[in-house]
Amino acid sequence: MTRILLIEDDTETAEAILAELGDRGFEVQWAGNGVDGLDRARASSPDAMIVDRMLPGMNGLTIIETLRKDHIRTPVLVLSALGAVDDRVRGLRTGGDDYLTKPFALVELVARIEALLRRPTERRATRLQVGSLELDLIERTARRGERRLDLLPREFRLLEYMVRRNDQLLTRAMLLEEVWHYKFVPATTNLIDVHMGRLRHKVDGPGEAQLIHNVRGSGFVLRSRS
């Protein structure tokens, strides 16, 4: 069954879309705010998404931009009451695949989703590996050799970000902006160091080659070779 993620804060609109897509055989998951929607998009790997532009917590374009930065290429239909050409162009340039202005006919929404699903998609990697460390992006699990790592969702996202950029120095500011989505970097915070300490304890077990390194005064690096 084709899985659709709907991120829409207007209950009446969401219920109408849920009913229409459900009647046509789609499995639809609904998130009512931007933060929950982004988490569901990362965790559930839907076949397509419908994202309202104006959302509480995090706006729709920020969700799309964040997913594209994370190399998640799920096709997205943007919904918005803003129908000017500049607004549509911005939605598409941010990473949206199609744009539908409110109010709309449900039959047109369904047709646009079906068209997105017919488009050829890039083959996406479902596993990432650095040395003995392997991440399953579908199941959201991680292993170090035969040992399964018990990671919290934020720890998994942090480790995934580092694995995708192995051997690259990552500053605290980069991690705050890209993993925590901070719009500004606080003058003083030990948030990164606390999470990195916990992650290193889980990734680098006793007797194993160290993968996560602290570069004094600069940041952190996940090295493919010690």
Rank of each mutant, 00 (worst) to 15 (best):
residue 161 Y to N: 01
residue 57 G to R: 01
residue 157 R to C: 07
residue 220 F to T: 03
residue 30 W to E: 03
residue 42 R to H: 11
residue 148 R to T: 15
residue 103 P to L: 06
residue 176 L to Q: 06
residue 65 E to M: 03
residue 180 W to V: 05
residue 116 L to S: 12
residue 2 T to W: 00
residue 40 R to F: 11
residue 216 R to V: 11
residue 83 G to N: 04
residue 87 D to Q: 13
residue 77 L to S: 02
residue 5 L to C: 10
residue 141 T to A: 10
residue 82 L to G: 00
residue 69 K to E: 13
residue 169 L to Q: 06
residue 58 M to L: 15
residue 47 D to F: 02
residue 20 E to I: 00
residue 98 D to A: 14
residue 43 A to E: 12
residue 138 I to A: 11
residue 175 L to M: 14
residue 88 R to T: 10
residue 15 E to R: 13
residue 120 P to A: 15
residue 105 A to M: 08
residue 206 P to C: 02
residue 135 L to F: 04
residue 166 N to F: 15
residue 165 R to G: 07
residue 7 I to W: 01
residue 216 R to N: 08
residue 28 V to K: 09
residue 54 M to W: 02
residue 176 L to S: 07
residue 222 L to E: 01
residue 32 G to Y: 05
residue 134 E to Y: 02
residue 84 A to S: 15
residue 133 L to R: 00
residue 157 R to F: 03
residue 5 L to M: 10
residue 104 F to K: 10
residue 24 R to T: 10
residue 69 K to S: 11
residue 220 F to G: 01
residue 100 L to Q: 08
residue 164 R to K: 15
residue 224 S to Q: 14
residue 132 S to I: 06
residue 122 E to K: 13
residue 190 N to W: 02
residue 6 L to A: 07
residue 44 S to V: 11
residue 105 A to C: 05
residue 19 A to T: 10
residue 146 E to I: 14
residue 107 V to S: 15
residue 117 L to G: 08
residue 199 L to C: 09
residue 31 A to I: 01
residue 18 L to Q: 09
residue 103 P to T: 06
residue 209 A to L: 12
residue 175 L to W: 03
residue 203 V to Q: 07
residue 216 R to E: 09
residue 46 P to E: 06
residue 81 A to I: 09
residue 81 A to V: 12
residue 23 D to H: 09
residue 124 R to Q: 12
residue 131 G to D: 04
residue 27 E to W: 04
residue 140 R to C: 13
residue 134 E to G: 00
residue 129 Q to S: 15
residue 19 A to L: 10
residue 5 L to H: 03
residue 167 D to R: 05
residue 96 G to C: 13
residue 203 V to E: 05
residue 160 E to P: 05
residue 34 G to L: 06
residue 26 F to Y: 15
residue 171 T to H: 03
residue 12 E to I: 10
residue 225 R to K: 14
residue 4 I to S: 01
residue 100 L to V: 12
residue 152 L to G: 06
residue 70 D to N: 10
residue 19 A to Q: 07
residue 102 K to R: 13
residue 7 I to C: 05
residue 215 V to Q: 11
residue 53 R to T: 08
residue 146 E to S: 14
residue 27 E to A: 11
residue 68 R to G: 04
residue 168 Q to W: 05
residue 169 L to S: 07
residue 170 L to G: 04
residue 46 P to A: 02
residue 49 M to H: 03
residue 73 R to K: 12
residue 48 A to N: 02
residue 57 G to I: 07
residue 155 E to T: 09
residue 210 Q to V: 06
residue 156 F to I: 04
residue 178 E to S: 10
residue 13 T to I: 15
residue 3 R to M: 05
residue 204 D to C: 07
residue 17 I to F: 03
residue 132 S to M: 12
residue 68 R to T: 09
residue 54 M to I: 15
residue 42 R to G: 11
residue 35 V to K: 05
residue 145 G to V: 12
residue 91 G to F: 08
residue 96 G to L: 07
residue 130 V to R: 04
residue 34 G to Y: 05
residue 75 P to A: 07
